[in-house]
Amino acid sequence: MWDINTNSLLALLQWCDSNFPSGAFNHSFGLETYLQEGLVTDAATFREWLTVYLNEQLVYSDGLGCRLAYEALDEGRMEELWALDRLLTVQNLPWESREGVRRIGERMIRLAAELYEDPSLKQYRDRILRKRSYGHPAVAFAMVARLMQAEKPTAVLACLYSSVSSMVQNGVRAIPLGQTEGQRLLMHMQPALLQAVEAVERLTTDDIGIVSPGLEWSQMKHERLNTRLFMS
């Protein structure tokens, strides 16, 4: 287990808050397809879907991206960081999901650059404005976590938890589930989140984008659903 200081804990709690205005509440990243096809209908089936989403997509995108971004920042390899931003974006094949992640990342970077006096954050924001970078939540989390002197595993955990927490809230609205059931689900996901952090540590850059075909297919099919609550 790793240590975490109070300042970094408070900063990361702010970024993981479901009220943080990242726009994640607008996106289901394919969950809505499973809902309309009758494959996710209650808390039990949603937990199955969420576990697959964490282990078969988030680990190989946001989790691994956050770890690699943290390492690049730690060693001052900024060109590698910008290359990672591009790689994380272009490997996301479904258009809606790719655009959704880009919008969330862009908003997070803009907010971070306004909240913290950090040259790297401002450089990232400027690159996005000049269309030289896309913006990705995993890179944003790594930048803020490192700025707050949080340990690398903590940064990865916060990044993964934020995505899972947002998805739980969206599931509570869409299935629908009670708020208590949503909190119970988040509690049950805690061991899986810790295991996901350990899995991320064993991966390499070559593993970016190894996503379950079923998840990608559901995200592509979302574009053609008859009725939609979410943008992706």
Rank of each mutant, 00 (worst) to 15 (best):
Y34N: 00
I109Q: 08
A43T: 06
L73N: 01
G105M: 04
L12V: 00
T89S: 15
Q14T: 07
I109K: 02
R77E: 15
W95Q: 13
M108C: 11
Q123D: 15
K122L: 13
Y53Q: 14
D85S: 03
L111V: 02
N5R: 03
R125A: 14
E75I: 02
V52L: 15
N26A: 14
F29T: 13
L31R: 07
E106V: 06
M78E: 12
I4S: 00
G63I: 07
F141P: 12
D42W: 00
V90S: 09
L31F: 09
D3Q: 11
V101Q: 08
A72E: 09
S18R: 11
A11Q: 15
I128R: 07
F20Q: 09
L84T: 01
L84A: 03
P119W: 07
E80K: 04
E80T: 04
V101I: 11
A72K: 01
N19E: 11
E80D: 13
G38K: 06
I4G: 03
L9D: 10
M78N: 11
L35F: 00
E32G: 09
V52H: 15
R86K: 14
Y134P: 00
T41I: 10
I4A: 06
V40I: 06
N55L: 10
E37G: 04
Q91H: 14
I128E: 03
V101H: 04
E48W: 06
A138Q: 02
Q57L: 15
E114Y: 02
M78A: 13
A72H: 05
A140G: 05
A11C: 13
G105K: 00
F20C: 10
G105P: 01
Q91P: 05
N7V: 12
M108G: 08
D74I: 02
Q123H: 13
D62A: 15
C66A: 12
D62K: 10
L64W: 05
G38H: 05
L68S: 04
A140V: 05
A24R: 13
A72C: 12
R98T: 07
L115P: 03
S8F: 07
F25N: 13
A11F: 09
L93W: 11
R130I: 05
I4L: 08
Q123E: 15
S133C: 12
V59N: 14
S18P: 06
L54P: 08
I109W: 08
I109C: 14
A112Q: 02
W15R: 07
I128Y: 06
R130L: 07
H136C: 06
R130E: 15
F29S: 15
L68P: 12
E56F: 00
Q36S: 10
A83C: 02
L54G: 05
W49P: 10
Q91M: 14
P137Q: 11
R47K: 14
N7K: 11
P137D: 09
E48Y: 06
A113W: 04
N55T: 11
Y60V: 11
A140I: 04
F29Q: 14
L35A: 03
L10A: 10
E117R: 10
E56P: 00
R110H: 14
D118M: 08
L73R: 02
Y116M: 07
F141W: 06
G135E: 07
F141E: 05
G38N: 03
S8D: 08
E96N: 10
Y34M: 09
R86E: 15
